[in-house]
Simulated assay, not measured.
Amino acid sequence: MSTELAALAARLDGAQQDAAAIEQLSAGGALDLSDAYAVQHALLTRRISRGERAVGLKLGFTSRAKAVQMGVDDIILGSLTDGMRISDGGAFDPASAIHPRIEPEVAYLLDPEDPTRVTAVAPALEIIDSRYRDFRFDLSDVVADNTSACAFVIGEWRDPAEVGPLGNRAVLLEIDGRLVQTGSTAAILGDPARAPQAALRLASAQGFPAHAGGILLAGAATAAVEVPAQGVVEATITGLGRVSVRIERSIR
């Protein structure tokens, strides 16, 4: 990796650790997509060097609503670490992020020996937090920024055969019991069952390990909403279950 790309990764890493927004990388000149993924890999390496462990992958912009919201139209791939994971019902501190947003997703667990095989499925929440000012970016910016990955929560894993097809299940997103978004799993690539194959294709093209820890977040089923200062955010997917996170701001 070039010194220039390593420096871009260091800027993004510092922005994440300090919870302080930076200017878009593209403001200093366009990045091509291969360089953007190289920056993302360098970001992951920096996190691993601090003791985190890669546990999965995430797809971005699989929802048309999300793509429109963010002004981009390509599917992208990001990395998950154990440092991003929050237990179901656990707490997230919004002070640890810049301008966090949250969205409901479907999570898949892939067989580490055969990543084309799904062994379990669960409802999930993803918290995203662009490190760029005003949550604005182009495609290469967001890829370099690890697809705005911040934190994720996974509900109870279930047997895919027991759950059945997930192609058009109702999705609800609530904050303190107040409905803030509704959607369908069909918003995820038309059917979230397409997500594992899409992830493996991108992983092969962009140099990610095929299994990468086994977890796959398939993408958002609704547009993201701002994380509240406090409260409980809960997602429900019909026939799959519920998952929640408590928002608790620390005193700093």
Rank of each mutant, 00 (worst) to 15 (best):
L139R: 13
D159N: 15
E174S: 05
I127F: 14
L139F: 04
T147K: 06
A210K: 08
A107F: 03
P192I: 10
A120R: 15
V106D: 00
R117P: 03
D145Q: 09
R201P: 03
A218T: 14
I215M: 12
V163E: 05
P165F: 06
R131G: 07
A161G: 11
R133E: 14
E174H: 04
A203Y: 06
P209L: 07
L172C: 01
A161H: 11
E105A: 01
T182N: 03
R158A: 15
R136D: 13
H211R: 04
T222D: 04
A170V: 13
S204C: 10
G214D: 03
D141F: 06
V106N: 01
P192F: 09
D134T: 08
P209F: 05
A151G: 12
V171W: 01
L109A: 15
W157R: 09
L125D: 03
T185Q: 01
L217I: 14
S140K: 09
S184C: 03
T185W: 00
S130T: 13
T182I: 08
D145F: 04
S140L: 03
V153I: 14
V142K: 07
D134G: 10
V163Q: 07
V118D: 08
A170N: 14
T116S: 15
F137P: 07
E174R: 15
A187P: 02
A198N: 07
P104V: 00
I188W: 02
L202Q: 09
I127K: 10
A221G: 14
V118K: 11
H211T: 13
L166D: 02
R158C: 11
S184W: 01
V118F: 06
G167M: 07
L179V: 11
R194V: 05
A218P: 12
T116D: 15
I154N: 02
P115E: 12
I175W: 00
G219N: 02
R131C: 02
R131E: 08
L216K: 13
W157I: 04
D176N: 04
V225A: 12
E226K: 13
V153A: 04
V142P: 05
F137K: 12
N146S: 14
S130E: 06
V227Q: 11
V180L: 00
H211Y: 05
A161T: 12
D176I: 00
L179P: 02
I215R: 13
L173R: 02
G190E: 09
I127R: 10
T119L: 13
V106T: 06
V121M: 06
S140R: 13
P192W: 11
P112R: 09
A198R: 15
D114S: 11
R201E: 15
D129T: 09
L109C: 10
R201F: 10
L216P: 09
R169W: 02
A170Y: 04
G183I: 00
D111E: 08
G167C: 08
A203L: 09
L217E: 10
I175E: 10
A224S: 13
D111A: 09
H211I: 06
G207Q: 03
A220T: 14
T119G: 08
A198W: 05
R133Q: 12
L189I: 08
G190Y: 03
F137M: 11
L179D: 01
A218G: 12
E126T: 02
Q206E: 15
P115W: 11
V225C: 09
Q181R: 15
T116K: 15
G177N: 01
L172E: 09
G177C: 03
G213Q: 10
A218E: 06
G207R: 05
T116E: 15
S148N: 12
A203G: 14
